[in-house]
Design a binder for these strands. Structure first.
Lengths: 191, 191
DNA sequence: ATCGGATGTTGACATCGTACACAACCTCGC
DNA sequence: GCGAGGTTGTGTACGATGTCAACATCCGAT
């Protein structure tokens, strides 16, 4: 009707994307515990049941949030993978991985420890594998090297996020670069 | 009173331990999502408020559960650390770490991704560090080597648990042993 | 213009974590 | 013995959450 506030249209326009954005925002400020379906709906100015028109339930919303996180991760890794030197590039990827985790800890956790554990070898994996292939040799197959490199940075990120290791901010990224580089050189020399 | 059922004593006897055990059991069957304070109380045949006499809230119960998990982990790592050869021992520790995670996935998650993120360099860390010290050299300091080894197995475990990697059961442990061993040898040779 | 599907709303329910007040029990000092 | 006082468990209540069912509103194709 003509008299009503344009912000209060019955139809939201793009609720699905707004819900994902709201969930992401909530994730950043309050951690995973503060993420509620109702809260996201409230943020979008919509009723508690509206999200169910776009997601089958809470879990599916979280999966969508995680998916958007994987997109960002892939972009960050691709950007870091610039150096011509294989070991340097791998180290840069490692640092970028840890940086991503440190900057969006709750998102990172959700992406990996979340309820949706789909076996999706993501785009990020492909980027890493491409680099690892240039370093692999007889001592370590490509698959193992890729898995080792990924485990290394993933574990480092996880340990840092959970404060299992006294590193934070810049120091964390430095450690990631240093360790990934050492690992890459070890692998390259032993080829 | 003499007529009452002995199972229905007003005092439970050892509620605290029973609650931790109940939570652990629930964790194994239904994952972290199925873990509720009320549920644990119900399992123990006690009112919903009783747990608050032993824990300040849900978080503290979870911390107690996690602590019991760390105990078990340390025991498992210590048992695996038997071999005289440093690289072999490190590989065995890595396999044991992954095995632990695979056998009690929800517990493992709770221990690390749980709400309580205390900077406790646990006993498990000391065991690992001792081994790593025998392999470190000029190329990689003890601290970095320890951190790298831990990150490697921790990341591997995390990726396996979240099905990010197509490994399960025996294959997972094999991969852990293989990769940890390769890493340890690389480090030892480059010393 | 209208009809149907997509989108949102209201109301209700079970469950959860937790606060407050009260009851049963155990352990002392006497 | 026995009663005082702390310890442990109970009952009730409140607000928040995820989800179901039924209903309302809107937009686009016909």
């Amino acid at each position: 009707m003509s008299t009503s506030d344009p912000d209060r249209r019955y139809h939201h326009g793009d609720l699905r994307a707004s819900l994902v954005a709201a969930a992401l925002a909530q994730l950043e400020v309050g951690g995973a515990a503060a993420l509620s379906l109702r809260g996201a709906a409230r943020t979008c100015g919509v009723s508690a049941m509206a999200p169910y028109r776009h997601f089958s339930g809470k879990e599916e919303l979280l999966e969508a949030v995680a998916a958007s996180g994987f997109e960002d991760l892939a972009v960050a890794l691709e950007a870091a993978d610039a150096s011509a030197d294989g070991a340097q590039a791998l180290a840069a990827q490692g640092a970028a991985y840890v940086t991503f985790a440190c900057r969006q800890p709750a998102l990172f956790r959700l992406m990996f420890m979340g309820p949706g554990c789909g076996p999706d070898r993501s785009r990020a994996y492909a980027i890493l594998e491409r680099r690892a292939a240039t370093l692999a040799g007889s001592r370590m197959a490509v698959a193992d090297l890729t898995l080792a490199a990924w485990s290394l940075v993933h574990g480092l990120a996880a340990l840092i996020l959970d404060r299992r290791v006294p590193l934070a901010g810049e120091a964390a990224e430095d450690a990631a670069r240093r360790i990934t580089l050492a690992f890459a050189r070890l692998a390259a020399e032993a080829r």
